[in-house]
Amino acid sequence: MKNIYGLLGRNIGYSFSRGFFSEKFETENLDCEYTNFDIPQITDITEVIKDTKIQGLNVTIPYKQEVIEYLDDLDPIAKEIGAVNVIKFNKEKGLIGYNSDYYGFIESLKPLLNDTVKKALILGTGGASKAIAYALQQLHIEYTFVSRNSGHDKLSYKNIDKLIMANHTLIINCTPLGTHPNIHDCPDIPYQYITNNHVLYDLIYNPAETTFMHQGKEKGATVSNGLQMLKLQAEKAWEIWNA
């Protein structure tokens, strides 16, 4: 009987995970299968988890926070982050939530950093941004969230000026703006103030170079998409499922 792993999300036909794990299973000759569980609402998870062949799930937009109430326990790091992207099916303990996004982000970001990076802007406030914030804490990089509306501990896009851009040389896009097919979209920041000290990191991986990244590259910034982060978090998920 094949062990089943899968991705839980909404509108996930584009998914990186299914291709990554299917190739891994074939290359390593593993008797496993990876399936997309594309559900219109989180309550539909109750049907998915009835399948006793499922050993683990990845979780993506928009369920990284909503899924928590359906789990039996949380790994301490996932609890602190407040978002889950990996679920382990444990026979004794039930469904346990983990977060491997923060690990993938840290390890993919480290090679890009320069000595000027002391503060970061996190664009977006969804589930992914929570893991990014936790990762930056581990790296001792101060951060400020940016959202459509300003509020406690967050700026609005219209608040960002030359001084803020100069002080925050790491900018991470955690929004879906620029994802295929809407490839001309990008976060509304003042790109004219980007310098060659800046690092622009986009969690999007399709297209490989987003408009956000392209704008940064034109100013001499170091840029990266989210593909390496995805690969690293996926390998970490596999470790978690098989620990």
Rank of each mutant, 00 (worst) to 15 (best):
E23A: 12
N159E: 15
L230M: 15
F37C: 10
N58G: 09
K154F: 12
E107L: 12
Y193D: 11
S15T: 15
K2Q: 08
Y70H: 04
S129D: 08
I12S: 02
V199G: 08
V146P: 01
E142P: 00
L203C: 03
M1F: 05
G94H: 01
N85Y: 04
N90T: 07
K93H: 06
K119C: 01
T195Y: 06
G82Q: 07
M213W: 10
D44G: 10
N29V: 11
K110Q: 12
P111G: 07
T175V: 06
F25I: 04
I68N: 11
I77S: 07
E80G: 02
F37I: 09
I61F: 06
F37Q: 11
G82V: 11
I87Q: 06
I122K: 06
I171K: 15
T125R: 00
T52E: 15
E26G: 03
A135Q: 04
F89E: 07
K79W: 01
R18Q: 14
Q215K: 13
H168N: 15
L177E: 08
Y102W: 15
I189R: 05
A120I: 13
G9Q: 08
T27V: 13
I171V: 14
G9E: 07
H168L: 07
I45E: 14
I106F: 05
D75Y: 01
G56Y: 10
Q233Y: 03
T175R: 10
A166H: 11
Y5H: 02
K236Y: 11
K93W: 01
T125W: 02
G178I: 06
G9D: 05
K154T: 13
E33F: 00
L163Q: 04
E80C: 03
Y63M: 06
A234P: 09
E92D: 15
P181C: 06
K231T: 12
L74M: 11
L95Y: 13
H180N: 08
N3H: 06
Y143P: 00
L7N: 04
N197S: 11
Y14Q: 12
Y143T: 02
N90P: 00
W241S: 06
I4Y: 04
L170T: 11
I189D: 09
T169E: 13
P111L: 05
Y191R: 04
K79F: 01
A243M: 08
L57Y: 02
L200C: 14
I189N: 07
V84I: 13
D75N: 10
L155Y: 14
P76V: 01
K79N: 14
T125F: 01
A128F: 01
I106C: 14
D153Y: 04
I240F: 00
P207D: 09
T43K: 09
K119P: 01
I4A: 03
N159V: 09
M165G: 05
I194E: 00
E80Q: 14
Q233F: 02
P176D: 06
K219A: 15
K2P: 12
F20L: 13
T46N: 09
V117T: 13
N167D: 15
C174Q: 12
N242G: 04
R148D: 05
K118I: 11
K50N: 07
K50S: 02
D115S: 12
T144W: 02
